[in-house]
Design a protein around this nucleic acid. Sequence first.
DNA 1: AAGGCGGGGAT
DNA 2: ATCCCAGCCTT
Length: 325
Amino acid sequence: MTFAPSLHQWFLANQRDLPWRHTRDPYRIWLSEIMLQQTRVTAVIPYYERFLARFPDFPSLAAAPESDLLAAWAGLGYYSRARNLQRAAQQMLALGRFPSTYDEIRALPGVGDYTAGAVSSIAFGLPHIGIDGNILRVIARYTADSGDISQKPTRLRISAFAESHLPADSPGIYQQALMELGATICTPQSPKCLLCPLASSCAARRDGLTTQLPIKLTNKTTIEETRHLLWFSHNDALLLLQHPPTSPRLAGFWDLPDSSLFPRLPLGPPQAQFSHSIVNHKYELLIHTPRLPRRRLPQLHWIPFSRFPELPLSTITKKAIARMQ
DNA sequence: AAGGCGGGGAT
DNA sequence: ATCCCAGCCTT
């Protein structure tokens, strides 16, 4: 059997049972694709169920208070996804329906080449395919492509190969089968070639290159910086700031203020100048950000502890608060 | 063409 | 510690 039929047959027999495979509702499939951007299946599932219970269709999502939306997304990361999700839902509301062509879908905020291809093929059966990290790896190995998969020419070759084998009668199965193979068999480390339906015609396996491919040359170094978070509590309330809506990170999320807002604040002993009635502690933790931009001083608000469950709080902030309480 | 963006699981 | 995850957007 050739490429696509082998994948198809393997997928029907071996696919995982995932929540978004129980529906043909484009809204639910689109939501799953947005949540799955750079996020593992196991991390997404509980968020997906909760989110759909709260926002079952695009009109309810479009009408949601932003704070509710961000609170529902809190912990998933890449929070611009949530804002773009709602903007897209509002565009659907204006349009009066879920967009149903590749170009319409691709034009939605937060939808790039991958997501447009995946929603087109899976939800609408259109002859498109989105190339994700799994598919890049599977095809780079299958064709023994030694090009850098972060480079455009390599991606174009792989995309052309995938499209050349796309079956007109089942693009959605083809799309998901390629990704499923990459996620469960053709994994980055220790791929399970003995279980692979494509093993007999895989060029990387033939040439003994499986563990060498794919090639990815981008070598990003992560710099760790220490943030000194400041804790001001008074009468069962905590002094918090809200990141501006346009902030490049954690937009709309509430956070503990940190020492960069108070340049003259010597770190170490509690600061008496704030008030005798305000308890001041120092808290310190590491975050994975390469820089800490200096912005204008945001306004601080006293937020009662009782409101925290409904507030958008990043995971790291929740951890910091839990440690201090 | 790069860099930035969260958080967690696997190695 | 490092990599990578059903990527997208801005510079």
